[in-house]
């Protein structure tokens, strides 16, 4: 696994005081919070910061981390020392949040859980401070629930999908050292999930070491932006280009929908920006969403003699003044 320089992540010196660390965290959290931030890599940055702060805010974890020495560089290959955690007393009531172990995001190198959920942190963190390490909190009862995020594209949200999910679990090896192991499971996501919904995977959260029942894993859905459709709840909006004569005279046009193309009638006299509704053609659900079709009148270019001549004909035979409404207002 790769070493992580937590001081670098928070942009503080190794000698920084607890207050300086806290203020660096607050400043960065405000900037990179994934619910608020517009920074492109906000999610990853926030998670890295959160992991760094988790260690540096806690005097015991910070002292242990500092003992690794300052010679390590970010990204260097690293193995925890065999005597890791020796010499520390582990009292109750520390502010820590226990081990890693949530899901991993599909199609991403970064662990899932982009936001401030349970500590699904790096392998580096997991091996030093995670469940099973001397720093893990003792949990006598049932296992905890874990939370992770899952990215789903709109087409998959519409028809449902089966996805592979990598789950990380810290496991104690026979020699007493800790290993974060990954196992892959298949999950069928039913049709009609929307943004921010929770999907429960029973019993896939943290294991309960002493006979209690295991926690659940919750996946929070995130629907990826689609090039064609704008999603709002279960409704989708599509912009449909139409020719001027289709708008003026009315037409029957073929419109793409999530479920495949359908025919739609445009009434004569339609205008650019006008919205038509295809009821029930959004994401499935109770009730299903609708698809809105926003018309966009597209002009044919006057690029051939024929096209030019048609435009000239319109100019001479139509009594049309596009600026009629401006007359007499400011002249």
């Amino acid at each position: 696994m790769e070493f992580r320089d937590y001081y670098q992540v928070l942009g503080v010196e190794r000698t920084a005081t607890a207050d300086q660390i806290k203020s660096a965290w607050r400043r960065l959290a405000r900037k990179y919070h994934p619910d608020v931030s517009k920074e492109p890599d906000a999610e990853k940055r926030f998670k890295d910061m959160q992991e760094a702060y988790e260690v540096l805010r806690d005097p015991e974890k910070r002292a242990a981390y500092d003992q690794l020495g300052s010679q390590w560089k970010s990204g260097e290959q690293f193995r925890p020392p065999p005597d890791w955690g020796n010499g520390f007393e582990f009292g109750g009531g520390r502010g820590g949040r226990g081990g890693p172990g949530g899901g991993r995001r599909r199609r991403a190198e970064e662990p899932a859980n982009g936001t401030s959920q349970d500590g699904d942190f790096s392998d580096f963190f997991g091996s030093l401070f995670g469940g099973g390490s001397p720093f893990a909190q003792h949990r006598p009862r049932g296992g905890r629930d874990h939370h992770a995020r899952i990215d789903i594209d709109l087409a998959a949200a519409f028809r449902g999908t089966t996805t592979l999910l990598e789950l990380k679990r810290p496991e104690l090896k026979p020699d007493g050292t800790l290993e974060v192991r990954t196992h892959t499971v298949r999950v069928t996501i039913p049709a009609g999930v929307t943004e921010g919904q929770l999907i429960r995977l029973a019993g896939q959260g943290e294991g309960a070491p002493e006979g209690g029942s295991a926690g659940d894993l919750y996946l929070e859905t995130h629907i990826l932006p689609d090039p064609l459709y704008q999603l709002d709840g279960r409704d989708v909006t599509l912009t449909l280009p139409v020719a001027p004569w289709e708008a003026a005279l009315g037409a029957s046009v073929t419109v793409p929908t999530l479920g495949g193309p359908v025919d739609m009638r445009i009434a004569p006299g339609a205008e650019s920006g006008q919205k038509l509704r295809l009821r029930g053609r959004g994401l499935p659900g109770q009730p299903p969403g609708d698809q809105y079709v926003q018309l966009k009148i597209v002009l044919p270019p006057a690029s051939t003699p024929e096209a030019k001549s048609l435009y000239e004909q319109m100019r001479s035979s139509l009594d049309f003044d596009p600026r009629a409404q401006l007359k007499g207002t400011h002249t």
């Binding site: 629930d145 499971v185 298949r186 069928t188 999930v193 929770l198 999907i199 995977l201 919750y218």
Partner: peptide, 26 residues
């Protein structure tokens, strides 16, 4: 090997949750 299949349950409007569970989930 084919990875094991898990049963996913989407919490939708038809699920009512008790305030204690809401507190835990949120």
């Amino acid at each position: 090997r084919t990875p094991p299949m898990l049963t996913a349950e989407v919490l939708t409007e038809s699920h009512w949750i008790a305030v204690t569970q809401l507190c835990e989930l949120c």
